[in-house]
C-alpha cells in the first residue's frame, strides 16, 4: 500500500494510486501561523488592517462590515491615506506554536502545510466592500493596480518570514474567485489584475521549497483554470459540480489537480443524512475518477459545521476505493 503522500503524488500525475485520496488527508495544517486573523464569536472587532468584523451570535461565521463609514477605503483614489500594512510578527515566541506543529508533522505521510487567508481579491473587497471593489477595477484601474501591488508586497513579506521560520512543504491559500455559477470577474480582468499578483506570490513559495500550492476557491472558476496553471497552482481545492469536472480533468489534468465535487452546503447541513451524503460521494467518485481528482467537500478547511460529516464522507470514499480499485 502506498503512503498517503505517495498516493497523492500518483493521483496528481495520473499514475497508479491504489485508492482515492481522502479529502484533506495529505495535509497536516498548521493553523498556528500568526496571521493576525481572528475569529471572535458573538463579537464585533477591528482587525490589523482596520477592517471591522462582526460575528453575530447564532450565525455560522463572520463578516466584514462596510456600512456607516466603517469601510477602510472610502475613496479608492485615496487608499494610501487609510491602508497601512500591519506589522508582521517575527519574534520566535509568536512563531513557536506554529514551529512546534511544523516539527511534529510526520512528513513521510503528510505535507507540512501552512494556511494563508484572505487572498488578494478578498482583501480588496474586505477593505472597501464587494461592489466598490469590483467597480473600481473599471473606474479607477490605476489606483486598484497600486492597491493590489501593495497587498501583494505584504503577502510576499509575510511569505518570506513564514518560509524562513517553518520551511513548509505546502500551502493552503484561500481566495474565493466566484459564485456558484460564474467567476466574479471576467477572465480578461483576472488576467490583468490578479494573475500577475499570484504569479509572484506562488513563484516565491515554489522557489523557497514549497512543493504544493493548494488554492481554495469554492466556486465556479472553470474559465480561470488556464490562469491557475500559469500562476503555478498544483491543486484547485473547492471545485464545485457547477464546473464540468470531468471535462476539466480531461483537458487540464496533466497540469493541475481538482479537489472537491462535494458541495459543503449539500452535505454539511443541520441533521445531514447518510443516504444523501453517500449518494453524492458515489456520484462524484464515479463521475470524476481517480486521476487528477480528489473527492472532498468544498469548504476551505477540514472542519465541519455539523458533527460527523467529515468522518462519514471519508468512510464513503473508502467504500468507493474498494469498489473502484
Amino acid at each position: 500500500m502506498l503512503t498517503i503522500r505517495e498516493n497523492l503524488l500518483e493521483t496528481m500525475k495520473g499514475g497508479n494510486p491504489d485508492r482515492f485520496v481522502k479529502q484533506y488527508e495529505f495535509i497536516d495544517l498548521i493553523m498556528e501561523v500568526p496571521l493576525g486573523v481572528e475569529f471572535n464569536y458573538g463579537q464585533t472587532w477591528k482587525d490589523h488592517w482596520g477592517i471591522t468584523w462582526q460575528w453575530p451570535e447564532g450565525q455560522l461565521g463572520m463578516f466584514p462590515v462596510h456600512h456607516d463609514g466603517l469601510a477602510v477605503i472610502q475613496d479608492i483614489t485615496e487608499w494610501k491615506k487609510t491602508v497601512t500594512k500591519p506589522v508582521i510578527e517575527t519574534s520566535d515566541e509568536a512563531w513557536a506554536p506554529a514551529l512546534a506543529h511544523a516539527n511534529a508533522v510526520d512528513r513521510k505521510e503528510k505535507f507540512a502545510t501552512v494556511f494563508y487567508a484572505p487572498g488578494i481579491f478578498e482583501m480588496t473587497h474586505h477593505l472597501m466592500g464587494m461592489e466598490n471593489a469590483l467597480m473600481a477595477l473599471y473606474e479607477e484601474p490605476e489606483a486598484m493596480q497600486e492597491l493590489i501591488d501593495y497587498l501583494t508586497e505584504y503577502e510576499l513579506e509575510f511569505a518570506a518570514v513564514m518560509v524562513d521560520k517553518l520551511h513548509p512543504e505546502a500551502i493552503l491559500h484561500h481566495d474565493d474567485w466566484g459564485s456558484q455559477i460564474s467567476s466574479f470577474v471576467s477572465p480578461d480582468m483576472f488576467e490583468e489584475f490578479f494573475l500577475p499578483a499570484y504569479k509572484k506570490i506562488y513563484k516565491f513559495y515554489k522557489d523557497n521549497g514549497v512543493e504544493l500550492i493548494i488554492h481554495h476557491s469554492d466556486s465556479y472558476a472553470a474559465n480561470l483554470v488556464p490562469y491557475m496553471i500559469e500562476a503555478g497552482i498544483d491543486i484547485w481545492q473547492g471545485v464545485m459540480n457547477t464546473n464540468n469536472i470531468p471535462e476539466l480533468v480531461e483537458k487540464y489534468g496533466e497540469k493541475i489537480t481538482f479537489m472537491g465535487g462535494l458541495h459543503s452546503g449539500t452535505v454539511d447541513y443541520p441533521s445531514w443524512e447518510k443516504d444523501v451524503v453517500k449518494k453524492q460521494v458515489e456520484e462524484t467518485c464515479k463521475a470524476n475518477g481517480h486521476k487528477y481528482f480528489i473527492p472532498c467537500q468544498t469548504s476551505g478547511l477540514p472542519i465541519e459545521n455539523f458533527e460527523g460529516v467529515i468522518d462519514y464522507i471519508d468512510e464513503c470514499i473508502d467504500e468507493m476505493s474498494k469498489e473502484l480499485f
Binding site: L134, I181, S182, S183, F184, V185, S186, M189
Partner: peptide
C-alpha cells in the same frame, strides 16, 4: 448567459 460578469453589471446599473 455568462458573457459578462458582476463588475460589468454593476457599472451598467450605475
Amino acid at each position: 448567459a455568462g458573457e459578462i460578469f458582476v463588475p460589468e453589471m454593476l457599472i451598467a446599473a450605475k
